[in-house]
Design a protein around this nucleic acid. Sequence first.
DNA 1: CTCCCGATTGACCGATCGGTACATTGTTAA
DNA 2: TTAACAATGTACCGATCGGTCAATCGGGAG
Lengths: 211, 211
Amino acid sequence: MPNQQDEHESTQERILRVAAEVFARKGYHGTGVAELGEATGLKRGALYYHIGSKEDLLYNLSKRHVEEALDRGKRVVATDLHPVDKLRALAREHVQTIAARRDEVTVVMREMNALTGKRARQLAKLRDEYQDLFTAVLQEGVDEGVFRSADHVTVLGVLGMFNWTYVWLDAERGPLSPEHVADRLTDIVVYGELLTSRGAKRGGRKLTGRA
Amino acid sequence: MPNQQDEHESTQERILRVAAEVFARKGYHGTGVAELGEATGLKRGALYYHIGSKEDLLYNLSKRHVEEALDRGKRVVATDLHPVDKLRALAREHVQTIAARRDEVTVVMREMNALTGKRARQLAKLRDEYQDLFTAVLQEGVDEGVFRSADHVTVLGVLGMFNWTYVWLDAERGPLSPEHVADRLTDIVVYGELLTSRGAKRGGRKLTGRA
DNA sequence: CTCCCGATTGACCGATCGGTACATTGTTAA
DNA sequence: TTAACAATGTACCGATCGGTCAATCGGGAG
């Protein structure tokens, strides 16, 4: 085995890292295995020796990423922080992950549906587990009387706000650290954007529904 | 021209509609032109007569969608509603669009980067215009003293919360109408999730930063 | 030295890719 | 009747697709 220790990174790890880059840039279906080979310095035959199949590569890449994020998230949930601080900590962990592993996040988010069969179901389950982290934190808050709700719409709304940062995070950052962004977004969902002075006494919800 | 009036829908419109369905399901790069042909009942030659190229099709599909959403949004922004109500109305319009045109939204969101060159830039500009709608509404609120902030992070956070509904909206809906969801999410960003009684006097932001 | 084995190469497979050229269809206007 | 025209089908282009396979390489262990 030639340059195994070039950057103390195994071939497997290099393939996963490079695949995340290329998939993020050109899309899973938009990337050929030959192109993956060029980016890794391997010919297609050698590449297949390591990856099994193109879809296996996507699956392993995604699985590893979500499992790692899940581990970090679980550690936060396991703390005994106040619900507001726990939500903030989870948000920080989440946004930091997005900032640090932008390519992987892009692939996991965008290529959700590119996986098929059992693989797709297994990864969906992992994503559900991650979502449950936010449900748990919000529910703790409800139980302690500090949050209003932990239903599906609330959880998905809050999580969506954080998830969407993967689209804009480094395009908009100048002096913006991931922690700064996470804190700001946390404040929005926790405290709201409304100033209490002039707006709070309004009932809101004055619009009539329409289909 | 054969079945032009079969559903009082032109061939062009049928192609755009079907392309949105197939692209949403299999991805832009994951869909072959032949497959598009089968789904529209046209052979590839006939299809190319109408679409020019595959990327033209994606571009026209995306452009039409964003322009229509932009028109509807501009009408809301042009009203003289109270900022909170205007935000709610814009949110409803947005979520209703997502619910009603799910396939198109999926394609526009997911295949952002599949367009190349000038086309990519033109569509990015349209998306920026749409984002500016939310900036404008929030800024009006700030000017009138009812909202706290209209900076980039706030706008992108709020818009992201609404945008992300395209991922989960009809999977989670039982008795949930788009208007219900839009109102709930609007309430979160406007009023926050924190109950005033026990949590408000906390400072929040007690976490120490970490890289 | 030799055997072994992880790693790599290059050739090959059938299928499909996006796109083009051209003949043909059916309808309409002159 | 015929000329024009939009619309469609068929055949073809070179390139690339994902995937397989046998041959080979190179270094460590016996």
